Computed example of a mutant assay.
Amino acid sequence: MPTFLSFEDKDPGVASRVPLVLVHGHPFDHTMWHPQLTEFAPTRRVIAPDLRGYGASPVTPGTVPLSRHAQDIAALLDHLGVETFVLAGLSMGGQIVMECAARFGDRIRGLVLADTFPAAETPEGRQSRNAMADRLLAEGMRGYADEVLEKMVAPYARPEVKAHVHRMMTATSPQGAAAALRGRAERPDYRDLLSGLTVPALVVVGADDTYTPAADAEAMHAALPDSVLHVVEGAAHLPNLERPEEFNRALGEFLARLDERTVGSPV
């Protein structure tokens, strides 16, 4: 059965290395992972979808909960014949990764949680997200993109990084972004889930992130039974784009550890 999502699938045919699945944040698309696709696709299978409502994937108006995004990812991986994998997500993508762990954690060999947090939304947060959804539907994406650009990436980020991030935001469907915001406002609390996970995890955060501060990453690291914390200096909410060499180095070390476990596991 064809998959619902648009996606990029880079498969060099190296079966000994666990596949990497990259889940983007809001309001972006899979091209936010360009430095990671470039770095890792030559040596392992890397799959980067556009989430429902983003990029080239179809838009579902109304409300799209995190559970629907998780179901879409499971269906995509089934379609591609990928049974086990490392699942990486940033911001909203990290929360989708946590939802995936709750639903099909037995398929996940490792988690990467970047610039995200596990708590349920507060009443004020729900109100704010729904108000922003109304605004995006009424005004479109450009005003919002202009306002938040230097929170998504640090004010000192390279011009080409700023341009890429702004381009992704303004290209996003307002209907898709609004539906995801309404769904995200209703997300569950994942903190108990994290404390029960046994697979290795990598927690990454930009040191200058104001959306999900380093304290949030430190709390996740403390809750996870088997995790590594990496704080990226000189980056805000998108360290994978702002400081790709450092982000890739931390991710590469984590993947190498998982590859060793996979090779050493019984068939």
Rank of each mutant, 00 (worst) to 15 (best):
A178E: 03
D146G: 00
A171S: 15
H221L: 08
R17P: 03
A180R: 02
F254Q: 02
E186M: 08
S57W: 11
W33D: 15
L194R: 05
P244F: 11
P266R: 11
L51D: 09
D189V: 08
D72N: 01
A235V: 07
R126N: 00
Y156S: 15
A177G: 08
E218C: 10
A223M: 09
C100I: 00
A217P: 04
A250Q: 12
V46Y: 09
V112D: 07
T198N: 11
P244I: 03
T170I: 15
P35M: 12
A120H: 13
L181D: 09
G81L: 10
G252W: 12
E233A: 13
T210Y: 01
D208E: 13
T172G: 05
L111P: 03
H30F: 14
P27F: 05
R243F: 02
T38A: 14
V203P: 00
P200C: 09
G25A: 12
Y54C: 03
E124S: 01
R109K: 15
S67A: 15
E246L: 03
T212P: 04
D106W: 13
L149P: 04
M98P: 12
S227I: 08
E8T: 12
E160I: 03
E242P: 13
A171W: 09
S67T: 15
G94H: 10
A114T: 04
R109E: 15
T170Q: 02
T262W: 13
V232R: 04
G53L: 11
